[in-house]
Every structure is written in structure tokens, then in C-alpha cells.
Design a binder for these strands. Structure first.
Lengths: 130, 130
DNA sequence: CTTAGTGTACAGTGTACGTGTACAGTCAAC
DNA sequence: GTTGACTGTACACGTACACTGTACACTAAG
């Protein structure tokens, strides 16, 4: 029961491996695929699966723990814990808006048809209702 | 007539300044705010406005030129040129999808209400029709 | 106690980002 | 044609970051 949550990263990407790991695991956490009580693979195990060094995974786990998602204890592994949503910081919203616009602009610049982009955005909007 | 296109960057952000400049200018280009023939401010001028070194702006301009947006010539400045859309690379779409999901997950993780996120996404979808 | 598992700390290496400085091309004034 | 003020470019440097290797410390099972 613990292995189903598989993540993948792109070692050729410009975005750092540890950040890709943080982002990928956070998606699973937010979407409920990793409910409180779940045990994450050990840093060495996940590192082997992803093809990176275990300290890189450790760095990612520590960041997730700092965000309040994980209970990370020496010698015992990483466990998902319950986490209340923080109060939304309004000034962050502007940054998110900018990043969304940039991402859409990049998609358009690389030739993704606007209709296709719209479909992706609608799909994302739908997934928010769950 | 050339000065209205103002951009802003956040020097405290973790994302590199030259990348913020590339992203911000690309948004203006994609949205048509900088039509072919427009002249961009000189590297030194824009650098002063943004509070960075002119080589940082130069780096951003070179990247935009490499993407086919700018005609950048020694001693003459940077001019927006007409640019056909490249054929969309299907494997890139998967990456964009991942980045969109990551961004939305991060917004949710930081407490932005789902309804608010949905509103932002709808707003973006609308802007694609223009 | 031993052992095999866990996460952690820290130094070393390569790379990326931003800057300072010197250089080279362009154009208008004279 | 020369000058001068503008343009972008090249390159070396300092600093910070991403990743790794290695040694360490904690935990649970035998």
C-alpha cells in the first residue's frame, strides 16, 4: 500500500532536482494522494529511484517538513502529518498571478495552441472542486 | 509612444533577475503590447530602471533574441521583429502541465482559497480569446 | 550488543548569477 | 573624416547555490 505514489523528475531540466522533488510531493499532498499517516520512502530509496544523491532528497524532505507537511525524525523516516492551511498572504497572490501569466505566455511562445492552453486551464479549474 | 511598456521585477525573489526580465518582456510580446517594430529601451536604460547591472539586461535580451523575438544589433539597440510560431513540441506540453499543477498546488498549500485560484484561472482563460 | 536501517552535518566541487571593466559597432553633428 | 555620445559585447571576478562523498548519530529489531 505504500508504493503507489510514484513521482518522476527530469534530470536535464534547468529547475533543481530538489525543487522538482518538493514540487512533485507537494502536488500529491495537496491532492490528497498522501494522507496524514502515510510513510514516505527513505531518502536513500527515493534517491535511487530518481537517480540523484540521497542528500538531495533529504534537502527536499527538510523543506517539506519546514512547510509543515512532514514529521521527519532521525532514524525513523518521514511521515505525513495533518496540517492546517496557513492564512493566505495577500502580497503573495500578486506573485502567483505573475508566474501564471508568465507560464501561459511561455506556452503560447512555444506554439501551444491557445485552445489547448484553455483546455488545460479548464481541466485544472475542474480539479479544484474535488 | 515607446515608453508605456513598463516592467517590474522583484530583486528579493529567488528567481534570477535576468529570468524575470525575460519572462516579463515575453508576456508583453505575446500579448501584443510590443508589436514588431517596437524599440526596447537600451540595456543601460532598462538596467537603471530595474536596479540591476546592464549586463544582466543584456543577458535577458540575448535570450529573447535567441527565441526569435528581437533583432539585437551592436550599437543599434533592440527591435522587436515578426516571429512565426514554432511547431508545438508535444513533449514540452507534459512539462507545462506539470508546472501548472505545481504552481496551483503551491497556491493551495499557502492558503489561497480554491475559489480564488479558480477565478484567476478563468481570468487567464478569458484573456486567451483576444 | 550488534546490526541494518533511518535522517543529519559538513566539506569539497562544479556551475550559475550578478557585477566591473574594457572593448567594438553605429550614427549624428560638425 | 573626425569626434563624441550612444549602442551592445566579451571576459574575468566574487559570491551563492546545487549536488556529491563521507562520516556521523539516532532507532528499532534480532
Amino acid at each position: 500500500m505504500p508504493p503507489p505514489a510514484k513521482i518522476r523528475i527530469d534530470l536535464n531540466s534547468a529547475v533543481p532536482a530538489y525543487r522538482q522533488i518538493v514540487d512533485a510531493v507537494r502536488v500529491l499532498l495537496v491532492e490528497g494522494a498522501l494522507p496524514p499517516g502515510s510513510e514516505l520512502p527513505s531518502v536513500r530509496r527515493l534517491a535511487m529511484d530518481l537517480g540523484v544523491h540521497f542528500n538531495t532528497v533529504g534537502e527536499a524532505y527538510r523543506e517539506l517538513a519546514a512547510e509543515g507537511w512532514l514529521d521527519l525524525r532521525h532514524g525513523r523516516g518521514a511521515t505525513v502529518i495533518a496540517r492546517g492551511l496557513p492564512a493566505a498572504a495577500p502580497e503573495r497572490l500578486q506573485e502567483f498571478r505573475t508566474r501564471l501569466r508568465s507560464l501561459v505566455a511561455q506556452m503560447r511562445a512555444e506554439g501551444v495552441p491557445p485552445a489547448r492552453i484553455a483546455a488545460e486551464l479548464r481541466s485544472l479549474t475542474e480539479s479544484l472542486k474535488s
